[in-house]
Design a protein around this nucleic acid. Structure first.
Length: 255
DNA sequence: ATGGCCTCGGTTCGAGGA
């Protein structure tokens, strides 16, 4: 079973790329973030024609998440019951016995801003909710755009980013709070080359210079981590014309 | 250099992203 996550930065713009990527990388589950579509505009027919069922929750202009699945989805749930939120950032479903949580964690803008406070409160509520969810669903995967680079190894220039949003101590402590639930960073279950990232700024030819951050993650509970045989970041879509600034992350699990 | 690029909404600029 292959699980993937991709922040597409507008599904309206990126739908052809998503469909093409799925045709060459036929994962079983694909979590999308930043769909930026209201539910009435979601391209259900195109995705179903590609062989995927879909669950989604969106809003105008910002945010929006979706789960595409080759298998039926049970117990589809939107948002976090412990956190009142206008912003559509979480959708969950049970697929082949795996509780899949697709999350678009807030960006936080800059340390010390209201948006940063919202990010930390949002993460605290996520962690408290998942502590319960893992009890009822021991096989749980949290996939998405975390907007956190967990360690300096996940940053092209740790000195330049030290203390900045995406890399601050409080954000990294929140990430470790998720790890403390018993979740494992699938990418770090395996030996990896250095300087592997999942996001590159559109400016300054950041991708060509590999000035990136690893902020998109797949966290697996213990029963799933034991089944995980690989975790890869597919850089190819970042080279395509009119790309998302993020690129897919894929975890492979034994059946 | 509080820059640079991309998307959206809705007009030709501002907000937000990361």
């Amino acid at each position: 079973m292959k699980l993937a996550t991709w922040n597409v930065n507008s599904l309206k713009v990126r739908l052809p790329q998503v469909l093409h990527w799925l045709s060459t990388s036929p994962v079983d589950v694909l979590c999308l973030q930043e769909t930026k579509l209201t539910d009435d505009k979601f391209p259900i027919a195109e995705i179903e024609a590609a062989g995927y069922q879909v669950a989604f929750t969106g809003q105008k202009t910002y945010n929006g998440v979706a789960i595409l699945s080759r298998f039926p989805m049970q117990e589809v749930m939107k948002n976090n019951p412990l956190f009142e939120d206008e912003q559509q950032r979480i959708i969950s479903a049970t697929i082949q016995g795996v509780r899949v949580v697709c999350a678009y964690i807030p960006n936080g803008q800059a340390v010390g801003t209201d948006k940063y406070d919202y990010k930390l409160r949002w993460l605290d509520a996520l962690t408290r909710w998942l502590a319960d969810e893992i009890q009822s669903h021991p096989a749980l995967a949290l996939l998405g755009d975390y907007n956190i680079a967990p360690a300096d190894a996940d940053v092209y220039d740790p000195a330049e980013w030290a203390g900045q949003v995406l890399c601050s101590d409080a954000e990294r402590a929140a990430f470790e709070g998720l790890i403390a639930l018993g979740l494992k960073d699938a990418f770090r279950l395996f030996a990896q080359p250095e300087k592997i990232y999942s996001w590159w700024d559109y400016r300054q030819m950041a991708f060509r210079r590999n000035r990136g951050l690893r902020i998109d993650h797949i966290l697996l509970s213990a029963p799933l981590a034991e089944r995980c045989t690989a975790c890869d970041i597919d850089k190819a879509p970042r080279k395509w014309e009119q790309p998302s600034d993020h690129t897919p992350v894929i975890a492979t699990l034994t059946p």
